[in-house]
């Protein structure tokens, strides 16, 4: 492209951008807040998802075998389950071991020496890969001949799944609302620039500038505001991650606050993309409305 044309275009964008510094900063600040919250929300959702998954993962199905069933039957069931793709793990707990575990768990609370015989049946502890599969696995187990009883925390699992879905939706709604707010503020900022430059726009239209050409500097202005805001937000999030996360992890020792699975670069680029897109869309609409009149 012709360097003179590029220079003229860039000077137009720079002029637009510097014309309403205060409004521009407001727009950038709003985008920053929005993107920080979006980033925090996405991170929380990711972590919460993982915590949820961990909790759900711990939901185990207790399979109690009939008294008539022996170790061989238990091993047969375990072998069968091992081939089932929905099953994450199977542990065989013979009645003696079950009693020992119970003794450990209840030590000091109940005097187990009163027991003259072992009341526990042989048992299997089964974990599903996915919480959604728990029902199916349990149903399959119930049909097995040597199985006496199948127990698992069905309600708790379902409630947890539902709650996390609702929380996710609320969070998404808040973020969407913030994005709309940011878009409106950018749009208003651009409209101020458009207003300040209405003479120039009128002259551009008079001498035959295409509406695309008239629009472009304003779109770039919105793009820049969105990008700057998002860049600031990404920087803040990076600082927060470096400073806050270790402290948080110390404060909540049992909560798996790992973000190792999140690709920081991709995540940052996504957030920048959201900021830039909000800026472009907002300015497109605000200039479009003006050009039509």
């Amino acid at each position: 492209m012709d360097p003179g044309r590029v220079r003229f275009f860039l000077s137009e964008v720079a002029r637009n951008f510097s014309r309403n510094v205060i409004m521009q900063l407001t727009a950038i600040g709003t985008v920053t807040v929005t993107i920080v919250l979006l980033g925090a929300f996405l991170f929380t959702r990711e972590t919460a998802g993982k915590i949820g998954n961990d909790v759900l993962h711990q939901v185990q199905i207790s399979v109690f075998l009939k008294d008539t069933a022996g170790a061989a039957d238990a091993k047969a069931i375990a072998a069968k389950l091992a081939h089932d793709r929905r099953v994450a793990s199977v542990t065989y707990v013979p009645k003696a071991e079950g009693l020992a575990q119970m003794r450990d768990r209840l030590r000091g609370q109940i005097d187990m020496s009163l027991l003259t015989s072992n009341p526990l049946p042989d048992a299997l502890r089964v974990r599903a890969v996915d919480t959604n599969h728990v029902d199916q696995v349990a149903a399959a187990l119930r049909k097995m001949p040597s199985v006496a009883k199948v127990e698992y925390a069905q309600d708790a699992v379902q409630k947890l799944v539902r709650l996390s879905a609702v929380l996710g939706r609320i969070g998404l709604g808040i973020v969407a609302l913030l994005i709309v707010t940011a878009a409106i503020i950018i749009s208003n900022t651009i409209r101020l620039t458009v207003f300040a430059r209405r003479r120039e726009i009128a002259i551009m239209q008079l001498v035959g500038a295409s509406s695309g050409y008239i629009r472009l500097p304003f779109i770039c202005e919105g793009f820049l505001a969105g990008l700057c805001g998002a860049a600031l937000a990404v920087a803040l999030l990076a600082v927060a991650r470096a400073q806050l996360l270790p402290k948080l992890a110390l404060a909540l020792p049992f909560v798996p606050l790992h973000d190792a699975d999140v690709n920081a670069v991709v995540f940052a680029l996504e957030l920048l993309g959201v900021g830039a897109a909000v800026g472009i869309v907002a300015s497109w609409f605000s200039v479009g409305r003006h050009l039509r009149t």
């Binding site: 012709d2 003179g4 044309r5 003229f8 008079l206 500038a209 295409s210």
Partner: peptide, 30 residues
């Protein structure tokens, strides 16, 4: 088109005002 009130851009020089009509229609700098 020429108007009674000239419709010039006050923050641009004579040269820039005239060049503006070419620049915004995508003319090459040459």
């Amino acid at each position: 088109v020429v108007f009674q009130d000239y419709k010039l851009l006050v923050d641009k020089t004579v040269w820039e005002n005239v060049a503006f009509a070419l620049q915004v229609t995508g003319a090459r700098s040459r």
